[in-house]
Design a protein around this nucleic acid. Structure first.
Lengths: 335, 335
DNA sequence: CATCTGCATGGAAACGATTCCATCATCCTT
DNA sequence: AAGGATGATGGAATCGTTTCCATGCAGATG
């Protein structure tokens, strides 16, 4: 049984029903000037016919698609999910739809998605940039309003505002905390694209007079498998390491699993601090000490920046916070 | 410094550059018939001008927006995030953008988002329905291709296919497992809208000859707070309960926290089974026994259904699986 | 040779909104 | 009372595509 598909009621129908011209209907509906009497008639007709303006017509005429595009590396990662939630929540209050793309932190896929966005004439985009800043050139030239969230592109793209968490501060606090507990051999498990955090890490070590070993900064790709391999590799290769800082919750998860698998006790054998507070950090055994990031806020603020016209600051910095639970202890050599 | 915004190159520009008519360009680019020579000229011109067709123009003409709409209760919930990931991954292979809306499991918000979808002329929608099936009437009448994921609307909407996990089977296996361990007072922590699972739960109990107590089915709203309140309330009010089944991972998280707070040991005092396997279930202390759901698959299959034309089955049922870890033990009275 | 078939082609009409501009009525000012 | 300012109004152009249809040409068929 096929339901008859009814033709969409257009502005023309409303105009006819109200006995006025289409221009008048458009004006009334978008808040232009009109006499009280006409306004009445038009609104009545629109309601009677259950008229909903077509975004398509409007967008074509205005040469822009309403709504905002959002590009994140992985929607399955709690951090990006919360970020997306912030964007969605802000966009909702503006009545704007949000189109999401997953880049997998792959520059090529990112370019592909950017292409789609241009094709859609999206003129407002929030992105966690994965790759090459140069990929954003065509977008900017097309007049798209871009805001970066959670990190900048590299090489950096000037004129694009960014909403960031205070990585530097978070890392410094964490490193100070660990050295305070006596740790000297501290490793950093990073994902590609976290050069900002890595820089903050080595900087903090230097500032505290702790020798920096390049080999203690380990890079993984964005997948769970790669994260696990990196974590397990580090723990096996360097039994002298007594503390690990992970650049994200996927890596933190991998570190916990790898430690458990290799029978390395947390925090007895190694202390662990994870970037990003997630609901399960508290449920974990032991509960994890984390550097909390305001993921939802980052998304919300970025959306505000992209949706509200007006002066746009170059950078909005949001605070990170060290949340101490039970995954760190005093240094005890493992060997 | 303001970058000059360049005018978009249109099909007309290409036609001019290639020395042919616009109709011909359109035909060549969308695979229509044309002589080899013309095709050559057109493609060369298009490439030279870096022409990207505007989705806006096409959509208006074809009276439909490409892409698919996706409505989920909460993108922050790992289950829905994975479901969304499945949808995104399938849609990507079709080159279709995905627009996401969060309903918060609130029928009113759902209606609002449905309104937005219609306004956008989205003609393909995947939804985890929150409320009233009747809210979907206008959408269907507008000729939109809808597929439900993870659950059906109630009252059910005929003619809308659904991709579901085998709740019934999962619940039955779990209940059999618990009764096998000697449990008789088994509670179900449900979220609103999980009547399907609740029915399966009471059904399974009946089939095993265990008396059903209505009071042991507790309902919570979609928020973390509400989930915690429900879990804590249950554990305090009914010290005779020795096993708890939770209808989702948020409720599972709440149950673990509440138990810990109230000094109820898992699995010594109560056994716990959670619906939906999440990465942290293994990291939890104790590791949780769960009913795993193929969230990503559900999303992928739903997207396939909505994107691929052709015969659409009324229901696609995907298997659930009981993953036994360490959160269940033999019955030991708490009192 | 006349006609028919088939194909490539381009002009023009949609699609549904916004917005420019010309028209007209009304009211105020001098 | 004439002129100008103001505000409401509707016709028509526009956005960038697809698609209908008429045209013209080439080759096949009677």
């Amino acid at each position: 049984m096929q339901m008859p598909v009814q033709r969409r009621t257009t502005i023309k129908d409303v105009a006819e029903a109200a006995g006025v011209g289409v221009a008048t209907v458009s004006r009334v509906l978008s808040g232009g000037s009109a006499s009280a009497e006409t306004r009445e008639k038009v609104l009545a007709a629109a309601a009677r016919l259950d008229y909903h303006p077509s975004a398509l017509g409007r967008n074509l005429r205005q040469r822009r698609t309403g709504g905002v595009g959002l590009l994140v590396p992985d929607i399955t990662d709690s951090f990006y999910a919360r970020l997306a939630d912030g964007v969605l929540s802000c966009a909702r209050s503006y009545g704007e739809p949000v189109t999401i793309g997953v880049t997998g932190d792959d520059p090529e896929r990112e370019s592909e998605m950017i292409g789609t966005l241009i094709e859609q004439s999206m003129d407002r985009v929030i992105a966690v940039p994965s790759g090459d800043g140069d990929a954003w050139d065509p977008v900017l030239r097309a007049g798209v309003n871009v805001v970066f969230a959670s990190r900048r592109a590299e090489p950096d793209v000037p004129d694009v505002p960014a909403v960031l968490a205070d990585d530097r501060g978070g890392v410094r606090t964490a490193v100070e905390y660990l050295t305070g507990l006596g740790h000297r051999k501290i490793a950093f498990l990073a994902r590609r694209g976290q050069s900002q955090r890595v820089a903050a890490f080595t900087g903090a070590l230097k500032a505290l007079g702790v020798p920096v070993e390049d080999e203690l900064v380990v890079h993984a790709r964005a997948s769970r498998d790669s994260a696990y391999a990196a974590a397990a590799g580090l723990l096996q290769r360097r039994p002298d390491v007594t503390a690990v800082l992970t650049g994200g919750n996927i890596l933190g998860e991998a570190a916990v699993l790898a430690a458990r698998e290799l029978d390395v006790r947390v925090p007895r054998d190694v202390s662990l601090i994870m970037f990003d507070d997630v609901p399960w950090a508290e449920l974990c055994s032991p509960p994890l000490t984390v550097i909390a990031q305001p993921a939802q806020d980052i998304g919300y603020r970025a959306a505000e920046l992209v949706l509200r016209q007006g002066r746009r600051p170059r950078t909005v910095m949001l605070p990170s916070e060290l949340v101490v639970r039970a995954s760190c202890g005093p240094r005890r050599p493992r060997q």
